[in-house]
Amino acid sequence: MSEHQHAEAHVTEYGKYIFVWLALIAFTGITVTAAGIGLGNWTIVLALTIASAKSWFVLNYFMHLKHEDTVFKVFIAVALFTFVIFIGFTFWDYSF
């Protein structure tokens, strides 16, 4: 929410939101179907990958991250990267 944002406020068209929504629904469909066919340990990997893809859409389009300053993107990238490291190392710790 930078101050100058409104001077150059970006207007996202309705159509784009509908497109993103369709993508999100499609991803949801894939996750549910994939969970049903029993891929064993890969189910969770696939589920988390799809969830991350959905998050990418929500962050970039619904939350307008695409049009934010670079410094914002860096902050969020660092926060998420740190979190992924935590989760990743936890799995590492427990799977070996």
């Binding site: 949801t28 996750t31 549910v32 969970a35 049903g36 029993g38 189910t43 969770i44 589920a47 988390l48 799809i50 969830a51 959905k54 998050s55 929500v58 962050l59 619904f62 939350m63």
Partner: peptide
């Protein structure tokens, strides 16, 4: 609101879709 949505995106597969 989008954050609430984001959290659910992860909660749903992790709790409902373990088979």
């Amino acid at each position: 609101w989008h954050l609430v949505d984001l959290i659910w995106i992860f909660l749903f597969p992790l709790f409902y879709l373990i088979h």
